[in-house]
């Protein structure tokens, strides 16, 4: 479920005037999750795949298993740490791909104008009408389960989210006098666009990509939850939640709730950060005008 809501950005632009206390917390939490995932082999107390039926479904707070164990006795803390790797890397792939596509198409539409602009804009409208999770499921039906195909599908799906903003900012910037002056100096169109226009588009791109990262994380975790994403033995937070289903019905929900909490807190942090970045850009632009 992904929506682009201009009203939200307008609102956060006003609120961002005093940096909310929550922003450093959000950034700190994301850093923590990233480090935990990166250093999981060093930091994790157990192997994420070490099963022990005698220790199954231990509650959080147990000596040696601080976040408890799942139904096959695997350490939940270690699994959440290892799960962070795929849970963060896969949406990062989506964001990088959609960023490149969005820049290319957005700049092309803005600079070329005319029919190229019409085709690109119309194409982005059509992609936008395709719910991202649906597109991801469609490619999984084609390619079979796994993460590569959904990553590519989601990248296409989020391209309008990035590309539309890049296009509108590039049109605004392109109309400014400095662009004309570079052109008068005899620089080529491509050089001016990449060297002088692109850096000015970057802040918006980063803010928008941050939000897209959150959406992609949710979509990919949902796919894994549905059994259409990550294949065992690999695990991300989504597949951990789906494996916890029987434990939840038995009244031992921890092995599902904790990865769920990891997803929730990560997405909240990403959103806070993205809206703060978007807000400070809006502020700069209105000050500059």
């Amino acid at each position: 479920m992904t929506l682009t809501i201009p009203a939200l950005r307008a609102r956060s632009a006003r609120r961002g005037r005093r940096r909310p206390l929550i922003v450093p917390f959000a950034a700190g939490f994301l850093l923590l999750v990233a480090v935990a995932g990166l250093l999981a082999p060093v930091l994790a107390p157990h192997s994420p795949d070490a099963t022990s039926l005698l220790d199954s479904l231990l509650p959080p707070g147990t000596e040696g298993h601080w976040l408890g164990t799942d139904s096959t006795g695997r350490d939940v803390l270690s699994r959440v740490m290892y799960g962070a790797r795929l849970s963060l890397l896969a949406p990062l792939g989506v964001v990088l791909l959609s960023g490149v596509l969005g820049i290319a198409l957005g700049l092309l539409a803005a600079r070329a104008g005319g029919w190229a602009d019409a085709v690109v804009s119309r194409g982005m409208d059509i992609v936008f009408a395709f719910p991202s999770l649906l597109l991801a499921m469609l490619v999984v039906a084609v390619s079979g389960p796994g993460l590569t195909a959904p990553i590519c599908a989601l990248a296409v799906s989020y391209t309008p989210f990035v590309g539309r903003v890049v296009r509108s900012v590039a049109i605004q910037e392109g109309a400014r006098p400095y662009m004309e002056s570079y052109r008068v100096m005899g620089f080529g169109e491509l050089w001016v666009t990449l060297r002088h226009l692109l850096p000015n588009v970057m802040p918006v791109l980063i803010a928008q990509s941050t939000l897209a990262f959150g959406y992609a994380l949710v979509d990919l975790a949902a796919l894994s939850y549905l059994g259409l994403g990550v294949r065992p033995p690999d695990a991300d937070w989504g597949s951990m939640i789906s494996q916890a289903r029987s434990a939840i019905l038995q009244g031992e929900p921890w092995s599902g709730l904790l990865p769920g909490l990891a997803v929730l807190l990560t997405v909240v942090s990403v959103n806070v950060l993205g809206e703060h970045l978007g807000g400070s850009i809006g502020r700069k632009q209105s000050e500059g005008a």
Partner: peptide, 15 residues
């Protein structure tokens, strides 16, 4: 709530 994925709220409510 906007950041809560549906599958997380689903298992939370279920539990």
């Amino acid at each position: 709530t906007t950041a809560t994925p549906t599958f997380v709220s689903a298992i939370g409510l279920l539990a």
